[in-house]
Design a protein around this nucleic acid. Structure first.
Lengths: 146, 146
DNA sequence: CCGTATCCATTCCGATACTG
DNA sequence: CAGTATCGGAATGGATACGG
């Protein structure tokens, strides 16, 4: 998408897409959640060219999704860590994953609770009183109407 | 992303991205949830060129996200409706929206329950016993280990 | 109104070579 | 190892013109 930058779009969905709306960025964030921190780790696991990896990382840092911190080993290099904001993407990633799993025939992965090793409840919307809600049961209204 | 099609990637996140991993597709789906059905409606609301809209719609239909149905008015034309699978993207869209709202300073929109007009609970993960879980409390394991 | 076809500009991607 | 610089090719996007 070239024309509209989306950056100033009123819709929060559009704005989010401006930050992480390309496939590489999403995959980088996925790897970050998987524990990857170093340039080379991302490079190898994603098999992405150095130059475009560099650009994507810069953008993610600029957007506040990742931050650079001094390497934990003694090296002169930096590591890329998820910020608080970046960690907020976990829900997005898992929503995407859940959708992908849901319609793919066979299940590839299961999200489990670290504590009891049991599967986590599927992501779903709940009303204030706890009722589960489907897409038709909700409505998006401007904040001003609230 | 040219090289790896992602289509055959083991990770469900990557596969999902193959289906709806570009910004236009996401926005089209957003509009579909907003009630848009016709080619011209998408064209105007997104201000996207006809040709690329056509390509995107075709792809979304091919991926089973949208389906074409005869127009509800008497016209000869078709309308694009979300399939069951497509409606599953609601959760994804709202997760993206929630993330965008969460870090933007001011809130643009609120998701409310149609029934009681009260805000819906924020999306979050819950363990089997109901405890709320953060990213660190969960782990993604291959289905074969389950 | 709903697309398809064409053209052109731009952008993106991957490979490679290079630096500290 | 962690990038930067450059380059050619491929894909994409936007505008426009055209057809059913």
């Amino acid at each position: 998408m070239r024309r509209k930058s989306l950056e100033k779009d009123a819709c929060p969905v559009a704005r989010s897409l401006e930050a992480v709306g390309d496939a590489w960025s999403v995959l980088i964030v996925r790897e970050a959640f998987a524990g990857k921190r170093r340039f080379g780790e991302f490079e190898r696991s994603l098999r992405v060219a150095k130059n475009i990896l560099a650009v994507r990382l810069r953008k993610l840092v600029a957007r506040g999704v990742l931050e650079q911190v001094p390497a934990s080993d003694g090296s002169v290099h930096q590591e890329y860590m998820l910020t608080e904001k970046g960690r907020g993407l976990y829900l997005v990633l898992m929503a995407i994953r859940q959708w992908g799993e849901g319609c793919g025939g066979k299940t590839e992965s299961v999200l489990i609770d670290r504590r009891d090793r049991k599967p986590v409840k599927p992501l779903a919307f709940h009303a204030h009183d706890g009722r589960e809600l489907g897409p038709g049961g909700m409505e998006l209204v401007p904040a001003s109407d609230a």
